[in-house]
């Protein structure tokens, strides 16, 4: 995919750095946008002046202002954002988080830290193949 762009929605600086490094290690050189919470991310996706159109969103759940689940609820109502593949990247292995997100049209649920070489997770492999096409 030639014009692949990634939006990382993550509040923790270290986690942002961690994702950047992982992508770099796996030779993923697509443009990476970073939003530090759900509100910023919605703005970036919808406000005209600085609008971005990513193919993939990497979404944290626990964030200030607007968490990942609330973000997903809002995104759903935008027809134009329907084709974006959204992957949850979280520390929460909780059943109720998995349940809450599975109904919101996500493409995968990946546990932190993001490790694209982890062969045990189908969702990770799915993300890797998407990014290295």
């Amino acid at each position: 995919m030639k014009h692949t762009e990634i939006l990382l929605v993550e509040d923790d600086y270290l986690d942002v750095e961690s994702v950047k490094r992982t992508l770099k290690k796996n030779n993923v050189s697509h443009k990476l946008h970073v939003a530090h919470n759900g509100v910023d991310a919605i703005e970036m996706l919808t406000k005209d002046e600085k609008r971005i159109i990513p193919n993939v969103i990497l979404l944290d759940i626990n964030m200030p202002k607007m968490n990942g689940i609330e973000f997903l609820g809002i995104i759903k109502s935008y027809y134009s954002l329907k084709n974006i593949q959204i992957f949850i990247i979280t520390t929460s292995a909780e059943e109720y988080d998995k349940m809450a997100t599975s109904n919101l049209g996500i493409s995968g649920y990946i546990l932190k830290p993001l490790d694209l070489k982890n062969k045990k997770s189908d969702d990770t492999e799915k993300l890797l193949s998407l990014l290295t096409q």
Binding site: L14, S18, R21, T91, K112
Partner: peptide
């Protein structure tokens, strides 16, 4: 323990970097 994990993982990340 869940909330302790995040900063602890951060430290581990910095060390490996």
């Amino acid at each position: 323990s869940h909330d302790l994990k995040a900063p602890m993982r951060g430290i581990a990340n910095i060390i490996s970097w």
